[in-house]
């Protein structure tokens, strides 16, 4: 739609999948401005809202707004408490941050892609702008790796450096020196697969959702009837996508809690 290129299905999809990249000196130093700006705005809005509600929180009869936020916090707290039996003062706020932020980043998927593309181009002068930060693998890896580092931090904090290294070599098969390489390989695979599965699950789901919206958007190329048909299908997919958005945010939060809870447990 809002492309300057020739209108082909490939061009349409590619246009929607192009990041607003701020190129650096080397490819690594590239910034995806759309991902960063959108996620930071969403984070500031949601956490600002939460802080605003909390600043007026009363222990008496809560207002509707406070009751809603309390519901959310109680929900996250219950989940964290059911998995992790220890000091929740860090892990529960972490889970809340993950859940709320990922939820809203996922929810950007509900915005109709072509109208948003028109808006970005005509109102903000941005040719390329991807609205969904979690459809950028950088975001999901950033979240998963942060959780991964926290996991290692807590493992070392709880068990000590010696305990951590001991566990690397002596668990899960046993402390026999002959088994050390196997243990280490096993743990290595575990430590690599955890952030990978954690981040790629979210990325894949949201990216796929975005692609399906684009494919349904292609119906607009077949005329008025096709546009209407595509619109109905898009609405259906968006309704189904509500489930995915919430579910993926929930799964991401639960895995965060599970990984950090596992780091606290010794073998």
């Amino acid at each position: 739609m809002a492309t300057g290129h020739e209108l082909t299905p490939t061009g349409y999809i590619q246009h929607h999948l192009t990041f607003n990249a701020q190129a650096g000196e080397t490819p690594f130093w590239t910034w995806h401005m759309d991902t960063i700006v959108t996620s930071v705005i969403l984070g500031v809005l949601t956490f600002g809202f939460l802080a605003w509600v909390v600043s007026g929180a009363t222990a008496g009869v809560p207002g509707k707004r406070q009751a809603f936020v309390e519901l959310l916090i109680e929900f996250v707290n219950d989940q964290a408490k059911s998995i992790f039996h220890g000091d929740l003062r860090f892990i529960a706020p972490l889970a809340l941050t993950v859940f709320v932020w990922v939820f809203f980043m996922n929810a950007m998927d509900f915005l109709p892609i072509d109208i948003m593309a028109l808006f970005y181009k005509n109102a903000l002068g941005l040719e390329y702008w991807r609205s969904v930060p979690t459809a950028d693998v950088n975001t999901t890896f950033a979240l998963a790796l942060t959780v991964w580092f926290l996991m290692i931090f807590f493992a070392i904090k709880v068990k000590g450096v010696r305990g951590f290294i001991h566990e690397l070599f002596c668990a899960p098969f046993g402390g026999n020196p002959l088994l050390w390489p196997f243990n280490f390989m096993f743990n290595l695979v575990e430590y690599v697969s955890k952030p990978l599965s954690h981040s790629l699950r979210l990325y894949g789901n949201i990216y796929a959702g975005e692609i399906i919206f684009m494919l349904l958007g292609l119906w607009a190329a077949t005329g008025v009837a096709g546009t209407i048909f595509g619109g109905i299908l898009s609405a259906g997919w968006a309704i189904f996508h509500i489930l995915i958005v919430g579910l993926q945010a929930f799964i991401f939060m639960m895995l965060t809690i599970v990984y950090i809870a596992m780091a606290h447990e010794g073998h």
């Binding site: 910034w31 991902t35 960063i36 706020p93 972490l94 941050t97 950088n138 950033a142």
Partner: peptide, 19 residues
């Protein structure tokens, strides 16, 4: 790319803010 690191930083800031 570097987006990852800046996202991780903002994530850390949001965690700190929430906590």
């Amino acid at each position: 790319n570097f987006t990852l690191i800046s996202q991780a930083v903002s994530f850390a800031i949001f965690i700190w803010f929430t906590a």
